[in-house]
Design a protein around this nucleic acid. Sequence first.
DNA 1: TATAATAATAGTAACGATTACTATTATTGA
DNA 2: TCAATAATAGTAATCGTTACTATTATTATA
Lengths: 133, 133
Amino acid sequence: MKRTSAQKQMIKNTLKELDHPTAAELYEEIRKAYPQISLGTVYRNLNSMADAGEILRISFPDIPDRYDPNIHEHCHVACVKCGKVFDTNPLPQDLINQIAEKTQEITGVKIIDQILFLRGVCKECRGFGNDED
Amino acid sequence: MKRTSAQKQMIKNTLKELDHPTAAELYEEIRKAYPQISLGTVYRNLNSMADAGEILRISFPDIPDRYDPNIHEHCHVACVKCGKVFDTNPLPQDLINQIAEKTQEITGVKIIDQILFLRGVCKECRGFGNDED
DNA sequence: TATAATAATAGTAACGATTACTATTATTGA
DNA sequence: TCAATAATAGTAATCGTTACTATTATTATA
């Protein structure tokens, strides 16, 4: 049967404090208060929470996975320069669903997951607007 | 200045023969005719072609990148079981563009790339329809 | 409350995709 | 023909993540 642990709680709490952290970022943050925590423990707990649907795993190519305690958010943007991930909250999910349905017809692949996957350059990395807009 | 090479040509040709191959799959196929080719050479050429916009790199999380000589295709589905990638050709790109534009407003991230990222289970892996539909 | 069964952990090794490095080979402009 | 230098082959290294294993800690129950 499932058991609690101090580590699990720390991971949950720290996840809420940081903004879309990677496993490594969580690890480093928790280590400040609890140096003996293991990176494997962070991954194991993140995985089980994600599998249980308690948190969201955000997987973009080329950058480490990031995690989100807000499971209602379903679309993110990643900055190609710093790798930071942003919410895109009021997003027309219906449009994405439409596309998925059509795709299923065309390809015969039974769709179980759709993620619109946006990449760009964030304000910070653009130097607050002095670049090309 | 840029130079030609037999390897580069083989990679280009084999890319057209296979269906959305990975670098490793290309490597294995080319090795049949030219055993001394190096995996690094395959990667290097795929990268330079992709950077030059001559081919498309398809990056899904958890599976190795796949490559497509059809640069007009912009949306793919991947099977979560076998990792195969499928085209979804007549796809409403405008919808995706709409979403991207709205996202740029909300987040301030200047969007440079949008990929709708569909995952599912392909016909083959579903056993030709004897599974749940 | 003590204890036995066994989740969960820490620490480290392994993995797989990709990139980096380096000595060698091959293309090409002169 | 040949010198300059892209491109290569082969191998080592990297990085995010998972696997492994001995140890620790939780919890149901005696």
